[in-house]
Design a protein around this nucleic acid. Sequence first.
DNA 1: ACATTGGGCGTACATTTGTAAGCTGAAAAT
DNA 2: ATTTTCAGCTTACAAATGTACGCCCAATGT
Lengths: 198, 198
Amino acid sequence: MSRAEQKEKTRRAIINAAFQQLSADKSFASLSLREVAREAGIAPTSFYRHFSDMDELGLTLVDEAGLMLRQLMRQARQRIVHNRSVIQTSVETFMEFIMQHSNVFRLLLRERSGTSAAFRSAVAREIQHFCAELADYLRKENKSTAEMALIQAEAMVILVFHAGADALDASDEVRQRITTKTIQQLRWLAGGSKPPAV
Amino acid sequence: MSRAEQKEKTRRAIINAAFQQLSADKSFASLSLREVAREAGIAPTSFYRHFSDMDELGLTLVDEAGLMLRQLMRQARQRIVHNRSVIQTSVETFMEFIMQHSNVFRLLLRERSGTSAAFRSAVAREIQHFCAELADYLRKENKSTAEMALIQAEAMVILVFHAGADALDASDEVRQRITTKTIQQLRWLAGGSKPPAV
DNA sequence: ACATTGGGCGTACATTTGTAAGCTGAAAAT
DNA sequence: ATTTTCAGCTTACAAATGTACGCCCAATGT
């Protein structure tokens, strides 16, 4: 195995170890360099060969999470075309998605209002991007102004994200109720700029 | 000074020390028993005379935050009577409030999706209470069903809280923009159940 | 063929943490 | 007046953490 390959492999091992350890009871802040190194199967000091400190690793994780969000957006769009209600399809896709990538999602949720300014702005950037894409869609669909579409999109994203946070630790049944509730909330928002086609 | 008085006094000192240390860069989880004790002006081990561990202190803080929320709700209601738009008055009151009690608010925001299950449910309970009161108000005002009123109230609270989080670290000017944006979002939500009186 | 590079390791150290054990002195109870 | 209680202190220790330093050796460069 080439040296570059090997290095990339350990780097992935570190990143995966970090994601692995993120859970309902463990935030990134409560992760220690040594713990991550242990899980990745390397010596603590080897960590520095890849990241200068935990913060740098954290920002990398946020970047990865951003990629996931874009992937989610694409997936939702694909399903929309040949299906029923846009809102329902989107929320359901979102819920499926976060269940599959719960740790990624948890990271975004927590660091959005976390203790590191660098993290907060990194997460804010990813979510902004997400909102902007949604706003663009809404603007075309509803022929509203760009400003209004963005405000609307932001509200929608906040509600869906929050619903996701609740859904993460809930039973299937409760999650279904949360989904229904969220759909209702989004419809009110959508109805504000356009007569509702309930 | 009586013994009971003295004890209560140091207990307050501990609680205040904890709130004091909470800031944009310091979450409750990153607070150490020793730090709090230091700030409170007592020896580390004296802490145990008042709380069995940091978690117990944390739950006390959440309770205090709950009191604040109820106080906020009363304050908003008082202002509503003799003023202009209900939504505008409420959001503005909320914004004033969180600026005055930013650390209390930050605690609620963070522990809502924090790492301790006990904290999460404690915060959830306080926010539920807040939502229920608002829902009651909405139900009477709009003659909607109790269920719909609650779903609506929850959406509103989420949006306002989130706006508060953003506003905390923003400049006065940005905060004003956030306020306007939030008012717009709430109007869409309110309009869903009743024709809007913009 | 030889020299350089760099990822990974082991050792080491200063800090910080939670908390156990036991003492002290003043308030409260007898 | 004597005893009991108990908030607060000092001392002590084990565990965990971040990270500096230097060695090793296989992949790479010459």
